[in-house]
Amino acid sequence: MMNEMNFKMPASLNELALNLDNADEKTYLISGGTDLIIKLREKKIYSGTIIDLKGIQELNYIRQIEQTICIGANTTFTEMIHSEILIKNAPCLVQAAEQIGSTQIRNAATIGGNIANAFAGADAIPALIAMGVKVKMMNAKGEFFLKDIDEVVIGSGKNSLHKDEVITEVIAPVLGHGYKSFFGKVGSRERVTIAKLNMAVVVKNNHETGVIEDARVVLGSLGPKAFRSDLVEIELVGKYITDSLQTEFEKALITQIDISIAGRSSRPYKREAVKALSEDAFSNLFGSPAWRCNNEK
């Protein structure tokens, strides 16, 4: 019907593929609903087709298969926070999940929805980029394909999915020995806040030499989409963990902010805010300053 909202309730991926067959620009996929329902109301969209993914039980899981962690698209942030697999292998993802919205939002909102919504200040996305995840998708033919998270989230509120495609899974590698990860954010208040700046860091520290061998630093809320900052990463790789490295790390972050949002009114605030974030990242990843001094070479 022209002026009605249709509602599809697939119970399996097979049924979902059939529902996707006629998908057009008036087809909306809903999972937790915390973003879509607000959007439909804001844009006064009263007709079209809503496909509810929440009834698809086979999209709700967190599994470890050897060196890979698979997270079903319907997994909520509350479920991620309580996942032993993620607590052990992907602390930055758990830290991001913990800081998303409120208890009510975390109980409903899903990882698949957070990616598809592609909000520039989304908290899970920087952590997913830092983890180097791949996103598994399915089309109306029931075919599955993989893309890097960076190819799925392509801009502010923009994803690269066609109307007849759906995110089904997030695939994260188990980070090897010596890897640590961190997520932090700064907003206008401590909790239930939209990030004015957020950051995920994954580092590999060689315990024998004390040198950082690999670093991925992802910044969010600094542009249309979260991105890896080469200039900050270069500052870390090959270095010993010292207090002066922390200073250099902070300086590099400020430089990145100056480049990314030159001329923006939020720049002075974010230059200051990133200092607290860099301190949090350092103490979280490398322990207290006292511990670091003892290891200085």
């Binding site: 809903i30 009510q104 409903a108």
Partner: peptide, 23 residues
């Protein structure tokens, strides 16, 4: 009406959710 205030909170399958953000 956008998940900020929680005045619409109800319990669904044992978990608190905002009833304004679920169809």
């Amino acid at each position: 009406g956008e998940g900020e205030c929680g005045a619409c909170t109800i319990i669904m399958d044992g978990l608190a959710i905002n009833s304004c953000m679920v169809l």
